[in-house]
Amino acid sequence: MEYKTVYQGNTAEIVEKKSRFIADVFPVSSEDEALECLERIKKQYWDARHHCYAYVIREERLLERCSDDGEPSGTAGKPILEVMKGAKLENALIVVTRYFGGTLLGTGGLVRAYTSASREGLSHSTIITKILGFKLKVQTDYTGLGKIQYILGQRGLHILETNYTDSVELTVLVSTEEEKAVTAEIVEGTNGKSRISRGKECWFAEVEKELKVWDVV
């Protein structure tokens, strides 16, 4: 299992016919957290006319919400949500605040503006793919180490830790989908001379070429 999400949100702004559209992007893990972020934005831009938003939360089922906040129906919240769905984002919130510039944009103009602002906000944010997996413990003798390192390298798997004693123990990040295949390949490659056990379940992702790991609580 894997999904795309916001690692670090940011703010971006576009201007359409003197109306300012300010997009704020947030990583969120619950609906309550999304609503708290929304309230902070409303206080920050207290004098703005509209605070339109959309969020997608991964819980027992996928939760999607959006709001036009006074704009004509379907011209703000839904376009923001469609940008998020197009980017396949989950556990994320986008709020687009509008300062009216005096010129009506029409429904088509509003859809384009809220869409563009949302995309601009995402382009300034850090987006990652989080993968669900395990910290796999692999214990072997020194003759099997090279073969295991080769297998892991071929699959592009990350070694978190290596302990050298009278044997070698590696802690390897492996996705739930790859676990069985990797285990079988290591057992076969070392002629059964390796012991493999499943460690903590975790999410992991590469963030700007650096590995980040989050244990599942």
Rank of each mutant, 00 (worst) to 15 (best):
M1K: 11
E2C: 08
T5S: 15
V6Y: 01
G9D: 10
N10Q: 09
A12N: 13
E16S: 07
K17S: 10
S19F: 04
D24G: 06
V25C: 06
P27Y: 08
S29H: 07
L35T: 00
E36D: 14
K42F: 05
K43N: 15
K43W: 04
Y45L: 04
A48G: 00
R49T: 15
C52D: 07
I57N: 07
E60C: 09
R65W: 00
D68A: 04
G74C: 03
P79R: 04
I80R: 01
K85S: 13
G86S: 05
G86K: 02
A87V: 05
L89R: 01
E90K: 09
L93V: 14
R98S: 09
Y99N: 03
F100G: 10
G101S: 03
G106P: 09
G106Y: 07
L110E: 10
L110M: 08
L110W: 06
V111R: 07
R112V: 03
A113C: 12
Y114T: 02
T115C: 05
I127E: 09
I127F: 07
T129P: 02
I131V: 14
F134S: 02
F134N: 04
Y142N: 11
L145I: 03
G146Q: 12
Y150R: 14
I151Y: 03
R155T: 11
R155F: 08
R155D: 10
G156C: 04
G156Y: 04
H158K: 11
L160R: 00
E161C: 10
S167P: 05
S175I: 02
T176N: 10
E177R: 12
K180D: 13
K180R: 14
K180I: 11
V182A: 03
A184C: 00
A184S: 07
V187Q: 14
I196V: 02
R198T: 12
R198G: 00
G199P: 13
A205R: 12
K212H: 09
W214F: 13
V216G: 01
V217T: 12
